[in-house]
Computed example of a mutant assay.
Amino acid sequence: MQAFVNLFGPLDALLAPEVFGGVRVIEYVLLALVVANFVTRKLAHDNHVLQYREGGAEAVSRYLPHEAMNVLLVLGSFYYTTVEQHGGIVLSTLVMGLFLTDFFEFESRKVEARREIDMERPKASLVAAILVLMYAGFQSLFWLVQGYWSAVV
């Protein structure tokens, strides 16, 4: 296994130490960011529907807290790549897929508003977010099932 390299100084001192079962703090931070992303996703969709009802298609705009959460998630997954190479690359790929899906889902909501049809839930980005949640949960909560996993594998 490759030795840990201290690239970011104080940030590494806060996020890279191992806590429960060899899991790093950054893995719990990423899991919390993914869960918070679900909350901001719901708030963003409710905001888009409200904007559409009150002002029509031209009033629908991006929800800044959700966009900021997406950027934090991308940056966090890129940082995780410096700490855990394999897991970080997989998570970064999933998060970038989520980021792109969110971008196009917003454009879909704009099209629905222009066509004056009911706004649907962002189904594709929900699926992508569930994949990210599953992998972040796997990385951070694996210590819960490690004994059973070792017995099988």
Results as ranks from 00 to 15, higher is better:
residue 2 Q to V: 13
residue 4 F to Y: 15
residue 4 F to V: 15
residue 4 F to W: 15
residue 4 F to A: 14
residue 8 F to Y: 09
residue 11 L to Y: 14
residue 11 L to K: 12
residue 11 L to M: 12
residue 11 L to A: 13
residue 12 D to K: 06
residue 13 A to G: 02
residue 13 A to R: 00
residue 14 L to R: 14
residue 16 A to R: 02
residue 17 P to Q: 12
residue 17 P to R: 06
residue 18 E to I: 01
residue 18 E to C: 02
residue 24 R to H: 11
residue 24 R to D: 12
residue 24 R to W: 09
residue 26 I to G: 11
residue 26 I to T: 09
residue 27 E to V: 06
residue 28 Y to K: 07
residue 28 Y to M: 08
residue 29 V to L: 15
residue 31 L to H: 06
residue 34 V to C: 07
residue 35 V to P: 00
residue 38 F to I: 03
residue 40 T to Q: 06
residue 41 R to H: 12
residue 42 K to C: 03
residue 44 A to R: 07
residue 45 H to T: 13
residue 48 H to G: 12
residue 50 L to G: 13
residue 50 L to V: 13
residue 53 R to F: 06
residue 53 R to N: 07
residue 54 E to P: 07
residue 57 A to M: 03
residue 57 A to I: 04
residue 60 V to G: 02
residue 61 S to M: 09
residue 61 S to Q: 08
residue 62 R to C: 05
residue 62 R to G: 08
residue 65 P to C: 02
residue 69 M to V: 03
residue 69 M to S: 01
residue 69 M to W: 03
residue 70 N to C: 05
residue 71 V to S: 07
residue 71 V to R: 11
residue 72 L to Y: 01
residue 74 V to E: 11
residue 74 V to R: 12
residue 76 G to K: 14
residue 77 S to A: 08
residue 78 F to D: 12
residue 80 Y to T: 02
residue 80 Y to N: 06
residue 81 T to K: 00
residue 81 T to C: 02
residue 82 T to K: 03
residue 82 T to R: 04
residue 82 T to Q: 00
residue 84 E to I: 03
residue 85 Q to V: 09
residue 88 G to R: 01
residue 91 L to H: 05
residue 93 T to V: 14
residue 93 T to F: 10
residue 97 G to H: 10
residue 98 L to E: 14
residue 100 L to S: 04
residue 101 T to S: 08
residue 101 T to A: 04
residue 101 T to P: 05
residue 102 D to Q: 02
residue 104 F to R: 02
residue 104 F to K: 02
residue 106 F to N: 03
residue 106 F to I: 03
residue 107 E to M: 05
residue 108 S to C: 15
residue 111 V to P: 13
residue 113 A to N: 12
residue 115 R to S: 15
residue 115 R to I: 13
residue 117 I to D: 09
residue 117 I to L: 10
residue 120 E to N: 15
residue 121 R to W: 13
residue 121 R to T: 10
residue 122 P to M: 04
residue 124 A to L: 01
residue 124 A to D: 01
residue 124 A to W: 01
residue 126 L to N: 08
residue 126 L to I: 06
residue 127 V to I: 15
residue 128 A to D: 05
residue 132 V to P: 08
residue 132 V to F: 09
residue 133 L to T: 13
residue 134 M to W: 11
residue 136 A to T: 12
residue 137 G to L: 12
residue 138 F to Y: 05
residue 142 F to E: 11
residue 142 F to K: 04
residue 142 F to R: 08
residue 143 W to R: 05
residue 144 L to M: 02
residue 145 V to E: 00
residue 146 Q to D: 00
residue 147 G to L: 04
residue 148 Y to I: 10
residue 149 W to N: 01
residue 149 W to Y: 00
residue 150 S to A: 01
residue 151 A to T: 02
residue 152 V to C: 01
